[in-house]
Design a protein around this nucleic acid. Structure first.
Lengths: 229, 229
DNA sequence: TTGACTTCGTGTAATATCTACACAATACAA
DNA sequence: TTGTATTGTGTAGATATTACACGAAGTCAA
């Protein structure tokens, strides 16, 4: 079966930059390509958009198929369309970025024995296509956005100590933050709930666990609160 | 001549939301369609991406062809790809937004007698396709971005009085600003140059004219200045 | 030429926010 | 019981934000 048009059409793909946070590392999810072009290279998960499929749906489907991940924070990043970014044909890629709670998502390679793995941002293999560039744009977006919107919580488990939240911000923003000022600021915004629980199995004083309350955040937002770290 | 592929391909277009500022109105540039679908409706300027053409290049080319505008601030906005946004076939549109100095750009309709006109944002006709939605996203982006990056100057003539800059901000942000505080803040950032000229032909005390100095801004930025209104 | 009109340009005091900074309390492990 | 690691807390000084009013400059019309 073939498809014919009166003028040339590009192919359209979606690619996803999936971020995870672990201990004190930002990580990104990559798959190892099993086919040419760039066979055996690591690449961002993604694939062709089906002809009647919404773009975001396509991105979620590809993630599900290639890595087993579903139900995650996903937002459009940028569309990359240099004429020669794919050696096969003209391919325009609508890139998304995603944030996941690492412990909730056990990744699994797709059926065709493709490798899937998390890589720390500080230690990446060479990537296929223009994916290094895509990743760079995604990092910039994350760095910019995490300061003005409460998306950081998407990277943490549901209950977390403040020190972990601070470590996350320090990692993403690439700069140290003052503990007392950070706590004062984030708690004064009044959308973190003290769960009354504390850390288990730690070899030192256990920290209180907090939970982000999206409803409270929305209420405060409607009242004019401006989130900013 | 036809083009054949082993699986279906969407068409890809670019559309541009071009903003202009005039007296005290934000305006957007629209063209009146001369063909079906949506014949005679107003629409954002745009068109199909050529098969070997970069996306931004395509956006600039379409603007040039349809409105005569070239050399303007242009930035990618968002990619719209709902399966049924165009009745003809699956069309994915990479939208851009642009800012122009109204007085520098005399628009001209394209050769095929298509109408081109500026419309105030407060008084728009019904638009073709999902262009109302695209425009809404563009307005949000402009509103968000103008506070953190000095893009407002792209909408003003090279030399402008502070009151005009303030009016621009008040219009885009949809809220009044205090004159003394606004002046204090913007002048303290030290990238506006007093041109030593004053307004001509005004029926009241003439204001000093200022000029935005991009080099100075870049220098200050490198030194850690954070633009914010 | 005078007075009415319009817009320009300016300062301060009160309040809120930001920054820098150190140590005792807690919990486990040896 | 002692050592070790991490939590949780307050304040003072500096900086930034807000609210607010009036004389100066220039044009226009009577």
């Amino acid at each position: 079966m073939t498809f014919t048009y009166p003028y040339p059409h590009p192919a359209v793909t979606v690619d996803a930059v999936v971020f995870g946070f672990d201990e004190s590392d930002l990580k990104v999810l990559l798959i190892q390509r099993s086919q040419e072009p760039f066979k055996d290279r690591w690449a961002l998960p993604g694939g062709f958009v089906e002809i009647n499929e919404d773009l975001e749906t396509a991105a979620r489907r590809e993630l599900q198929e290639e890595t087993g991940i579903s139900r995650l924070f996903l937002e459009q990043l940028y569309t990359f369309g240099s004429p020669n970014r794919d050696p096969r044909e003209r391919v325009i890629s609508v890139a998304y970025y995603a944030l996941v709670k690492l412990i909730d998502h056990h990744i699994q390679a797709a059926s065709d024995a493709m490798n899937v793995a998390w890589f720390p941002l500080t230690d990446l293999p060479p990537l296929a296509f223009d994916h290094e560039h895509v990743l760079e744009v995604a990092c910039k977006r994350l760095k910019g956005k995490i300061r003005y919107e409460p998306i950081g919580f998407e990277l943490l488990p549901e209950k977390f100590p403040l020190s972990e939240l601070q470590r996350l911000y320090e990692t993403v923003l690439e700069k140290p933050l003052d503990k007392r000022n950070f706590r004062k600021k984030i708690l004064s915004m009044d959308f973190l709930i003290d769960t009354q629980e504390i850390q288990q199995d730690v070899a030192h004083r256990a920290a209180k666990l907090y939970r982000f309350d999206p409803q409270a955040y929305q209420r405060l937002r409607d009242q004019g609160l401006n989130f900013e770290i």
